[in-house]
């Protein structure tokens, strides 16, 4: 797959053509938007938890450097995603105002920005922290930008299931930055995010399915229908609930985490059941909103238990 060819191909239908002919009007904010700051904040948070839960002490400067590299690496994969997906972003209302489809940043600039930051963040993490963490970060960027964005997203309704692994790696990278290794604990943190991703994204895609269909993205509701999506959301929620409680069951999280994860997991299942029995945009939105709260609270409690 030639990056140059794809870049040229993508430039066709979008307004970025104009941006290439004119001097750049991109502001600093547009480059920050390429980094997907909201996704980046979740990545930093989960990586921080992975680092804090890990045994041993990390020097604060090394810990900060690791988090910075992970954040920049995550941002770089977001920029590569926006470069490649500019054609479908232009079609969907939610993403049409992103810098590339809106014409404020040329596709080639976004590609160069993403590649530079990817190489820079991985090299810095390797030189300043350790090679395993750098290797995991490189694999995460590759998985998100190439495996998910370029391959799975447009070809299979299982796109976000497999692609969700990219979002699940940050706590493992944080753990690896702190310990230089991979532990069962960090794999469990990975699994929590991995099994959380399908119910989270499918709840969103249930009420955005028309946009995905128009853009030609084979999300599960578009390909298999809403009923099958609601069934799969319930199945993944049933798997997620015990996985969410695993840190407590394995003994590296306290009673507070145990109680919150069990109640939170039960609520995820209850909301997934309600969505299945009374399908509506409102029940889907409730599950989507609760899923964000659920993941945030689980990781926040793990962090608080480590600090106190």
């Amino acid at each position: 797959m030639s990056l140059v060819t794809d870049s040229a191909k993508l430039a066709g239908p979008i307004r970025a053509d104009a941006a290439r002919a004119e001097p750049s009007m991109a502001g600093v904010g547009d480059y920050l938007a390429l980094l997907k700051p909201r996704v980046m904040s979740l990545v930093v948070f989960t990586a921080l938890v992975g680092m804090m839960v890990a045994p041993g002490q990390v020097h604060p400067v090394i810990g900060f450097t690791a988090l910075l590299c992970i954040a920049v690496g995550a941002g770089a994969s977001g920029a590569l995603n926006m470069w490649y997906d500019a054609d479908i972003d232009a079609i969907m209302e939610r993403t049409a105002d992103r810098p590339v489809p809106a014409g404020r940043i040329a596709p080639g600039e976004a590609l160069a920005f993403g590649v530079t930051l990817s190489v820079g963040s991985v090299a810095m993490l390797g030189l300043m922290v350790n090679l395993l963490a750098a290797g995991l970060l490189a694999f995460t960027i590759f998985f998100y930008a190439v495996v998910y964005t370029m391959w799975l997203k447009r070809s299979t309704p299982q796109n976000i299931v497999i692609g969700g692994a990219a979002g699940a790696f940050p706590p493992m990278i944080g753990w690896a930055a702190a310990t230089g290794g991979i532990g069962i604990e960090s794999i469990v943190l990975f699994l929590i995010i991995f099994f959380w991703t399908p119910p989270h994204f499918w709840a969103l895609s249930l009420y955005k399915s028309e946009e995905y269909a128009r853009a030609g993205v084979p999300m599960l509701p578009v390909v298999a229908g809403a009923a099958e999506t609601r069934r799969q959301i319930l199945i993944y929620s049933l798997v997620l609930a015990p996985v969410g409680a695993a840190p407590w069951l394995l003994g590296y999280a306290g009673l507070a985490y145990g109680a919150i994860s069990v109640v939170g997991g039960a609520l995820m299942i209850a909301l997934a059941l309600r969505l299945k029995r009374t399908p509506s945009e409102q029940t889907a939105k409730h599950l989507f909103a609760f899923s964000i709260l659920y993941l945030f609270v689980l990781f926040a409690v793990l962090l608080v238990e480590q600090i106190t």
């Binding site: 750049s24 009007m25 991109a26």
Partner: peptide, 27 residues
């Protein structure tokens, strides 16, 4: 906007130099 981009790039590069310096001392 070009001036804002140049300032942001300058600040970023300065911060990077400072970070490398501090991490070198720490390590």
């Amino acid at each position: 906007r070009r001036r804002a981009r140049s300032i942001a790039l300058g600040v970023t590069l300065g911060a990077l130099v400072l970070l490398v310096y501090i991490v070198t001392i720490v390590k």
